[in-house]
Design a protein around this nucleic acid. Structure first.
Length: 830
DNA sequence: AGCACGCCGACT
DNA sequence: GTCGGCGTGCTC
């Protein structure tokens, strides 16, 4: 029974996936009174003609005073799909990361659960070109001819006609009764179906069947189909089998006549029906994989469990190759046995790799995967399978923290330090690790953070006794940590032992490894051929027209490409300013490395793995598979190489250029360099042999390299912490980065100055740096200014400070000249 | 964020 | 003159 009298008029508050900081009130059609629940989705009209999907947050019977509420058009769910815990979680994210709950909802719901309409334009049904009394402009004519073929969206039209504002022409054509605009609902989730065949009920007994065959005696093709059916589905032995039937595809696999099948269906001898099937491989290969833990692993696991008795969050600091995965598996099994749900977070690209296949083998059908390469339909299915209890364990990326868990018992965040856990664009700019820790609190769940190179802030929490710490210092299966060798390029250049940008040492080591039939990984964190090009005579450097960056040369496309906005122009064969033909490339990207390695090692196969070679869906897996099989000898790549890959035969890892990582002007650059280099190094040498890592640098004495050399995380941590303390950076402060965006440089600067000024004037106990020009001061024709707010550790006013910043922004945004300025708040930026 | 409306410059 | 640009306000 409903809480409300069913004759009462109900109103529903809806959270809509739009960046407007309020709920919207809709009227509930009376038919729904007994049926409507908080947490269900509803389709509602929004604006003039749009419809959107929202989630019901409250029900009441107070009509709004200031306006007439519109009716809910349709309820989409029988049961709630968003839980109270999720609502609280969304609100927390919105508050903490300074965005609206609507933006959180937008990120949380997979597109397939969020159907909304898009305006489509089609020809007026009564419109006849020849009979129309109106004159048409040239553009109108082009559009009408195109519309005669198919309806178009506004964006289609604006692209087709090359105009930004589509409105005028549509209005004119509407008036001339040539077109109409209608709404098409997009992205509706469609269950995957399978067409199946079974015998009509009337024939499911031996006698009837016999008669049937007599009947078909002179129709051998149909007889054949029927016989095949009986063979595949032995209903003579078990009549109940007929209900399931057989999939149409399977039945027709052996070239049976399709038309005979149709005839049999038409004559009601066979019948066709549809069932909903899963998009996921349901092979529950629960091969009861026995996971054998080493002594150290067992101990670590025990320590984690003991720590969980007192503390809810534990950091597992396990060196690369120490076998953290096996411990995870054991812990997941235990949590599942307790009847809880488990979430395992992995960095984006680690998800396509071996670790997932391994987990799938152990957990089979109760494990769901949530991944950005999944289609909308697949994501909806994961969502539903969690709601209906099929999936009790989810392995997923950042956004899987939004899935509808009901009783999480354990959250594991692998590679806890990984920066892909922080969403940068668009809002909500959340950190999945930190948000997951809060989510776990809501569920009273435990959190295990795992990393070989924990983030400074995370490790600090263990020293503050906020998190417990468990160490795993030994590599699994007797493997040794790799030997790290610093190769001083400057020195080699003086002695002329280098070969171009490769040190003689690296080349020699590579020759040795390849001769021994071992594999080599070369790491360079820069894609493309060369980061820029330049004219040797006049020093001209091509720049992006939309952004303040130089263009990266991509050889395979023979083009200059902007890595920030995607702008592309073709590679000039002469300098556009001085017509010189002497154009040189500056710096090394993975593409150029690949080319040079091919020259140096003509007998080896070189493969490149970066954003450009892994764009298509399976290319990533292909590259890895080829390397695993040993078909590739040398793998060149960006930081993609650092995540979750295990290769047995890699004996050498080369870091092509460590300098750039160390010199990045950012307080986290040392931390990042340490993590990156340590992680890539971990790819070298497993099992039998000690691997080697060669780091090419011109700063052989750099302290960070020294810590890496000695596998000294703790030493590095102490030094870095000291550094952070000196300059009051995290963990000694919390940062809030404000970015000011506008097409006009002057207005952008003015707005940022005023914002910084007003924050300084109104908020006490904080430090405001800037405004200053960020490293890239223009992106997509928007000028950028940046302000950094530092809030000292332990400041209890954090929430209030964020509110004050927000209200200063709101105030500035109301000032006429700053109306169009965009202010972006990034809490805990990375 | 979209989307509609309304005001204004630079072209036929 | 009108077409297409852009600023402004609103969404239950």
């Amino acid at each position: 029974m409903s809480l409300f009298e069913s004759t009462n008029t109900l109103f529903a508050e809806l959270l809509l996936p739009v960046p407007i900081p309020k709920l919207f009130t809709y009227r509930v059609p009376q038919d729904y009174n007994d049926y409507i629940k908080i947490g269900q989705r509803a389709i509602v009209p929004f604006g003039e003609r749009k419809v959107v999907t929202g989630v019901i947050t409250h029900l009441h019977s107070n009509p709004p005073k200031d306006y007439e509420a519109k009716y809910i058009l349709e309820l989409l769910d029988e049961e709630r799909v968003v839980s109270d815990i999720q609502f609280r979680f969304f609100q927390w994210i919105a508050d903490y990361y300074c965005c609206t709950p609507g933006e959180v909802l937008n990120a949380a719901l997979p597109a397939g659960l969020k159907l909304s309409s898009e305006s489509m334009v089609q020809l007026h049904p009564g419109f006849d070109w020849n009979e129309s009394n109106f004159e048409f402009t040239q553009k109108e004519e082009i559009l009408l001819k195109r519309l005669a073929q198919e309806p178009l969206t506004y964006t289609d039209i604006s692209k087709m006609l090359g105009i930004k504002q589509v409105h005028g022409i549509l209005k004119s054509l509407t008036k001339k009764e040539a077109i109409i605009v209608f709404e098409e609902i997009k992205d509706k989730y469609k269950p995957k179906t399978e067409r199946r065949i079974r015998l009509s009920e009337a024939y499911v007994n031996n006698k009837q069947l016999e008669g049937l065959f007599e009947l078909l005696g002179n129709k051998p093709k149909q007889e054949e189909v029927l016989l095949r059916y009986l063979q595949e589905v032995p209903i003579l032995q078990d009549k109940t089998l007929n209900k399931q039937g057989i999939s149409r595809a399977t039945l027709l696999q052996t070239d049976l006549s399709e038309s005979s099948l149709s005839t049999l269906i038409k004559n009601n001898i066979l019948e066709e029906f549809e069932i909903h099937i899963s998009r996921f491989d349901s092979t529950t290969t629960n091969e009861k994989q026995e996971i054998v833990l080493s002594e150290e692993q067992l101990q670590a696991e025990q320590s984690i469990l003991t720590a969980f008795e007192k503390q809810s969050t534990v950091l597992l600091h396990g060196i690369t190759g120490s076998g953290k995965t096996e411990i995870y598996i054991n812990l997941v099994q235990k949590a599942l046995a307790d009847g809880s749900q488990v979430l395992l977070l992995l960095p984006e690209i680690a998800l396509t790799t071996q670790i997932v296949q391994r987990l799938k083998k152990v957990f089979g059908g109760v494990m769901g995967i949530y991944h950005s390469r999944f289609t909308d339909n697949e994501r909806v299915e994961v969502w539903k399978n969690i709601l209906n209890g099929t999936f009790k364990f989810v392995v997923g990326v950042r956004s899987s923290i939004f899935l509808p868990f009901e009783n999480l018992g354990l959250v594991i965040i692998d590679e806890e330090h990984d920066s892909s856990y922080k969403q940068h664009e668009p809002a909500p700019r959340y950190h999945a690790r930190d948000s997951a820790i809060y989510l776990a609190q809501l569920h009273h769940a435990k959190v295990l953070l795992g990393s070989a190179t924990p983030g400074i802030e995370t490790y600090f929490q263990t020293e503050q006794n906020k998190y417990a710490l468990v160490r795993l210092d030994k590599r699994y299966a007797e493997a040794q940590l790799p030997t790290i060798i610093i190769s001083n390029l400057q020195e080699e250049q003086q002695r002329k032992t280098n070969k171009g940008e490769f040190s003689g040492l690296l080349i020699r080591k590579m020759e040795e490894a390849l001769a021994a039939k071992e594999q080599v990984i070369i790491f360079q964190n820069r894609r493309g051929y060369s980061p820029s090009i330049s004219c040797e005579d006049c020093h001209w450097i091509p720049k992006c027209v939309n952004c303040a960056v130089s263009l990266t040369y991509h050889q395979y496309r023979h083009a200059l490409i902007c890595h920030y906005c995607g702008y592309k122009e073709s590679m000039p064969d002469q300098c556009p300013t001085c017509t010189s033909k002497r154009i040189k490339t500056i710096g090394y990207g993975t593409e150029k490395l690949e080319e040079e390695l091919n020259l140096h090692f003509p007998d080896s196969t070189v493969q490149r793995m970066d954003l450009d070679t892994t764009r298509s869906k399976s290319s990533y897996e292909n590259i890895i598979e080829q390397f695993e099989k040993g078909e590739t000898n040398i793998l060149v790549g960006t930081q993609m190489l650092t995540k979750g890959l295990d290769f047995d035969n890699v004996s050498l890892v080369g870091i092509f250029n460590a300098d750039r990582m160390l010199h990045f002007p950012d307080f986290r650059s040392y931390e990042r360099a340490f993590q990156l280099i340590t992680q890539v190094s971990g790819r070298a040498g497993r099992r039998k042999k000690t691997g080697e890592v060669i780091i090419q640098t011109s700063q052989a004495e750099h302290p960070v390299l020294n810590y890496i050399l000695n596998h000294d995380y703790l030493g590095f941590y102490r030094a870095e912490l000291n550094e952070r303390h000196q300059h009051i950076y995290p963990p000694y402060s919390r940062l809030i980065e404000l970015t000011v965006k506008h097409i006009d440089k002057k207005i952008c600067r003015q707005a940022s100055s005023e914002l910084a000024e007003s924050i300084r004037g109104t908020i006490t106990d904080i430090q405001v740096l800037g405004p200053g020009e960020p490293m890239i001061s223009k992106i997509r024709n928007q000028y950028l200014m940046s302000i950094l707010v530092k809030v000292a550790r332990g400041n209890q006013q954090l929430a209030q400070i964020k509110k004050s910043i927000q209200s200063e922004i709101d105030r500035l945004n109301k000032v006429k000249e700053f109306r169009a300025v965009r202010f972006i708040i990034d809490v805990d930026p990375i």
